[in-house]
Amino acid sequence: MTELKERHEITLTVNGETVTRTVEARQHLVDFLRNELQLTGSHLGCEHGVCGACTVRLDGEIVRGCLTLAVQADGAAVETIEGVTETGEIADLQETFVERNALQCGFCTPGMLLTAAELLNAGKPATRAEIRTHLSGNYCRCTGYHAIVDAIETTNNKRLGTK
């Protein structure tokens, strides 16, 4: 059991690097990433778990970064858009997003990409309707989603075709 208190020291890996910080218990993961680590690729759109702009990976799975406390990530592995860009894991998806203009203001894009990556990682064919359903927790005001669905569909088909 940790001590019952307001500030806690946490150690976690973020994009493969180990970091240790003392955080306020109330600080959520995205404020931690943005303010303490200057990883500004993760965004805050609503801070109540609806818009998906804050999507990050926690121990390999996408979560709402605004609904996870930084202190909860103690000992965990966090990945952000900066990290998956560095590893090249979704380079094909990113390229297709750019080519297809599957983003405009770009504020939703990091969350959208990480959400899409989870679908791509399933390695299964996905219909446009299934892609749309999978994206339904990520709000985009600019694109109307059509181009995003195109980009994910194209990438998924390409990946499956080369298997």
Binding site: H43, T85, V98, C105, T109
Partner: peptide, 12 residues
């Protein structure tokens, strides 16, 4: 600008 955004390098 799209390339920056997809890489998490947007600057808002």
């Amino acid at each position: 600008g799209a390339r920056r955004s997809v890489m998490g390098r947007g600057r808002y």
